[in-house]
Design a binder for these strands. Structure first.
Lengths: 207, 207
DNA sequence: AAGATGGGTGTGGTCTGACCACTAAAAAAC
DNA sequence: GTTTTTTAGTGGTCAGACCACACCCATCTT
């Protein structure tokens, strides 16, 4: 009869419930026992649905308190997919290529949007040698004001890490030049600085 | 004591098991009851882990047969995240912006890699009016030879769809011009054609 | 009155045992 | 040898039982 598994049905119900009640991040959803009663299903089935959503990073669960909608930052998801996915060499190259292009997109957005004040603040951080390469770029992404890009980049970053490449060194001068170019809103110079940072020849045929 | 939830521990164990035994798509993993015994946990906990992985699309389950590793193409994942995620208006704008930039990256890659023959084949498809906008771009992405980009774009496409925008019309002439520019490997012309296709003013300050 | 204490209650976390529905392979019947 | 029946194994689901923890509130102490 019931072709669809119960837990999937519950996931669906939850989605509808959330959208119907217009629940947002941080809001609490009914308890497992209540859901079990309301939907006429066993508590274990409810739990299967909730655990799945939890692993996806969509909800958060606190013992003794309840289950809450989460401010999803595709975290766990990445770890998981990451180790499951990158198997062949081709995939690794794709990761690098994709990450580089996305980073250039990000630079473009920053160039168009960020004001000098923000960039100079970042500059001072770089000068005090307080940032890793990842942190440097994350700072830039935040200037982008595009959450989706930030998510994508975070995923790529983790992918990249899991490749266990030679550790990215901290090229202070390159960062500073990059910032300078961004402040000047000079597209050519920005790209050039980025290429140098990433050791990309001309970034044409190589990619 | 056990700070980490059991089901997460099981997920971890499964990953190690898979990588240790070098299991691939289609391979079978131990039954729920066997896992329960081997790991000294309750079957319900095993199920919570498996259901979560199933929702992620990493495994597949067939009643009466067993549980199998899956050829994951982030499917369900997208649907889920999609409806859960895009709540505010800002997110919608991010989707559009991100999709556009990614598409430009793709065009860049195609321009660098694809040969005329492939592009002309696509051209004939366009001329016979057999493609939707999505299909057109997917064809382009395939010329990119970057699976990761294809995954990202597919997700963005689904996000974009779930925004229920005015349907993207089929602009035959724009597609043809785009292809022409790609064949000529003319970056400026390509970008220009894309802007026209997407109705982007200058694609500078607007973003 | 103000603070500290300690149950009560509700919540998630986990385990166990019991069925059911289904599949595939082994055994039995032909 | 072929067909049918049985059987063992698997996922699907439920119900009930504890446990650990968080929070609230009446109670006790000061």
């Amino acid at each position: 009869m019931t072709n669809t598994k119960v837990y999937l049905e519950i996931v669906k119900q939850l989605r509808e419930m959330i959208s119907a009640d217009n629940l947002k991040s941080g809001d609490k959803i009914p308890s497992e026992r209540e859901l079990s009663e309301r939907l006429n299903v066993g508590r274990s089935s409810v739990r299967e649905a909730l655990r799945a959503l939890e692993l996806l990073g969509l909800i958060e669960t606190r013992r003794g308190e309840g289950t809450f909608i989460r401010d999803f930052r595709g975290n766990q998801l990445v770890q998981l997919l990451g180790t499951f996915i990158l198997q062949d060499e081709k995939a690794k190259l794709d990761v690098i290529e994709t990450k580089n292009l996305i980073e250039m997109d990000i630079l473009w957005l920053v160039l168009k949007r960020a004001d000098a004040k923000q960039l100079l603040k970042l500059k001072s951080l770089v000068e005090s040698d307080q940032l890793t390469d990842d942190q440097f770029f994350y700072q830039l992404i935040e200037l982008t004001d595009n959450y989706l890009f930030s998510r994508i980049w975070l995923i790529l970053k983790d992918y990249h890490h899991s490749l266990s490449f030679k550790k990215v060194e901290y090229k202070r001068d390159s960062y500073l030049m990059l910032i300078e170019a961004l402040v000047e809103k000079d597209e050519e110079k920005t790209l050039s600085a980025y290429r140098q940072l990433r050791n990309l020849s001309i970034l044409t045929d190589k990619y």
